[in-house]
Amino acid sequence: MTDTVSFGYEDVAPEEKTRRVGEVFSSVAAKYDLMNDAMSGGLHRLWKDKFVRRVKPRAGEHILDMAGGTGDIAFRMAPSGAAITVADINPEMLAVGVERAAERGIDGLVWSEANAETLQWPDKFFDAYTIAFGIRNVTDIPKALREAHRVLKRGGRLYVLEFSTTQWPGFAEVYDAYSHKLVPKLGQMLAGDADSYRYLIESIRRFPPMPEFERMIREAGFTQTKVEPLLGGLVAIHSGWKI
Rank of each mutant, 00 (worst) to 15 (best):
T2R: 14
G232Q: 02
T2A: 14
L230Q: 10
P122V: 12
A132P: 05
R20Y: 05
K31D: 15
G192S: 03
Q167K: 13
V174D: 04
R198T: 15
K17V: 02
A82P: 04
A102R: 15
I201F: 02
L158N: 07
D37K: 06
L158M: 08
K31W: 11
Y159T: 08
T118E: 13
W47Y: 12
I106L: 10
M35L: 15
V98P: 07
D195T: 10
A172V: 03
A67M: 07
S164D: 07
Y9V: 13
A95G: 01
W47M: 13
A114M: 14
I73N: 05
K50S: 11
Y178V: 09
S112G: 01
G240M: 04
L182S: 14
A83R: 15
H149P: 07
I135T: 12
V24H: 06
L34T: 14
M39F: 01
D193Y: 00
E15L: 12
T165R: 15
P57K: 11
R206C: 11
W241D: 10
Y197V: 08
R19N: 05
G97Q: 01
E214Q: 13
V183L: 01
M1I: 09
R136G: 07
R206E: 12
P184D: 08
S40N: 09
L43T: 13
A30E: 15
P169H: 02
E219V: 06
F207M: 05
R104Y: 04
G156C: 03
F171K: 02
F213Y: 08
E212D: 14
K153T: 12
E61Q: 14
A101M: 01
S80Q: 00
E214L: 09
L234P: 06
E173N: 12
Y199N: 08
N137D: 12
K185C: 07
K17Y: 04
V160I: 15
T225Y: 01
P122T: 15
V86E: 01
K17T: 07
H180Q: 14
A38G: 05
A82I: 05
F222V: 00
G221K: 01
L152I: 07
F51S: 06
V5N: 03
P169Y: 03
E10I: 08
L46A: 14
L161Y: 03
D11M: 10
Y199E: 10
A29P: 06
M216D: 06
A194T: 00
G232N: 01
L234W: 08
R154D: 13
T18R: 15
L145I: 00
S27A: 14
F163N: 05
I135H: 11
G232H: 02
A74V: 02
A172K: 13
P208T: 10
T18F: 01
T166Q: 00
E214S: 07
